[in-house]
Amino acid sequence: MHRTDAGAVEISNLSIVFSQRIGKVQQRVAALENINLTIADGAFVSIVGPSGCGKSTLLRITGGLVAPSDGEVRLYGTQVLSPRVESAMVFQHHNLFPWRTTLRNVEFGLEMANVPSAERRERAKHYLDLVGLTSFADYYPHQLSGGMQQRVGLARALAVEPKILLMDEPFGALDAQTRFLLQEELSRIWVQDRKTVLFITHDIEEALFLADRVLVMSSRPGRFIEDINVPFDRPRSDHTRGLAQFGEMKEHIWQLLKPSAAGSELI
């Protein structure tokens, strides 16, 4: 079923319940409950929330890796039942294939899509160049720094030229400086071709810096507690981070997350 008026991502009445054995009892955890979200084509949306609130789960359902217990996700009108061509994922841990060189890692998705080898190489090189790693094409992942590994992960997702990028805390494990650098780089790349991006993070500042719209999540059950429009002009820079309004919004989101964070032993 195709609808032309559909958003890039449409999540409706989505719930997922995990059944878990904790000690001797079987526990049912409602990780996500009745989630509804429509993301317009070309929007950059961030989701912030405390650890364990179901952010990764929501992204994996959207990516077609996990089936929901209830409800559905549609990408450009088509229901997600398995990973779709429209989307590509960047992971929290870089998840690069250790036996592939940088270039061959970027080629992976194109190989799976049976793109002929000459074109594949060309495209992989283009995206490697875009993330500034051309001279590292023949390195293995373990020979790269954490920031470089995440860049390769980003290039690998961009190479399949998806309409939607699904990013799960891609900069979460990096030091502050590298993280700033990569945020600016991602922002620059996004301004060039305006893909639809769903970006998960628990860094409030990162969410505000990157996104047009920030959704704040609470945990157990995971659901959205606020939907915030981010008005700052692009391209954004250190100047943006210094704006008074930026600081106010940061404080506001922090207040929203506080009760949730205090109530959870996970952080």
Partner: peptide, 9 residues
């Protein structure tokens, strides 16, 4: 890694 491969169809 298996999940990553799956995500790339």
């Amino acid at each position: 890694l298996i999940e990553t491969a799956r995500s790339f169809r």
